[in-house]
Design a protein around this nucleic acid. Structure first.
Lengths: 154, 154
DNA sequence: GGTGAAATCCTCGAGTG
DNA sequence: CACTCGAGGATTTCACC
């Protein structure tokens, strides 16, 4: 139980919040905002990345505008002897799978899937059912979604 | 059925992939990678943001290292007369709620929650049960997770 | 889409408490 | 040890081709 790397002070938390809102903020903007020099902000962000609190940066995409209008969560049930590593290995290999969450209890995994249309989603689910020792699925169709934090830049 | 804004060519898709992998890549790095000038890359990325394909940029965080070690999905069921807007309004008001997905069928919503520990999660679920016209919940405890794309920077 | 120049930003060593 | 300062280099930005 090492994990938590010493202390993160309030400034670190402010930087994390600022970078969650807009991952491309400049160090100088953040410096002005929290009242530190640019170099100090860079060192703190470098440190947050180095200790693994910040694992990376990414663009958020409107997949509907790319023609991937369908979003669903599929609950997967596996035969009792299936190891978790096997569940992860097989599901992550399906390109439409966006995220995999292994679950305690029933179901065994929850899969976030994106597809172009319902027919495509059907195919993805069929693929998932055929992959590994899946004994059952239940799919929740997403009608709308909301995510905390990420801010649209002007 | 307007949505798709003309054509996105292969270079646009490459830029999207590069920015998904690392949202802080410089224009000059991407320019070198896809064989375009820096200005052309900036113009394309600006356009992708302007038409809403790229909705923003964000840092990815290891919440466990911030002391938020618990992650769960909670399925919510509401009384039949509850409008979707009401579901979104009430759930997003709970600070531990990271994302809300409204669902076609049963359940009515799927909520992504983060908490410091099990006791904290219990409190959050209790809060959700009290908020709005919730008639029932089922919580899936996340043991492990995997997400596509985002790349750890060296 | 490319070029070039000005403004801004990043980076790192040196100095301070 | 964390911060500030400052200079050199890289990056962004924008008007023009």
């Amino acid at each position: 139980m090492v994990c938590v790397p010493e202390e993160l002070d309030d400034l670190d938390h402010q930087l994390i919040r600022l970078l969650r809102e807009d991952g491309r903020r400049t160090f100088s903007e953040m410096a002005g905002r929290i009242g530190l020099s640019v170099a100090a902000v860079k060192r703190r962000v470098d440190r947050l990345r180095q200790i693994g609190v910040i694992t990376g940066f990414t663009a958020t995409i409107d997949y509907a505008k790319l023609g991937w209008g369908i979003q669903a969560f599929t609950e997967l049930r596996y035969s009792g002897s299936t190891p978790v590593a096997e569940i992860v290995r097989t599901t992550t290999g399906v390109p439409e799978v966006q995220a995999v969450f292994t679950i305690a209890g029933d179901p065994d995994a929850l899969i976030h899937v994106r597809a172009r249309d319902l027919e495509h989603l059907q195919q993805v689910i069929d693929t998932l059912r055929r992959t590994g020792n899946v004994t059952g699925t239940k799919t929740l169709m997403v009608m709308g979604s909301w995510t905390r934090d990420t801010l649209r830049r002007s």
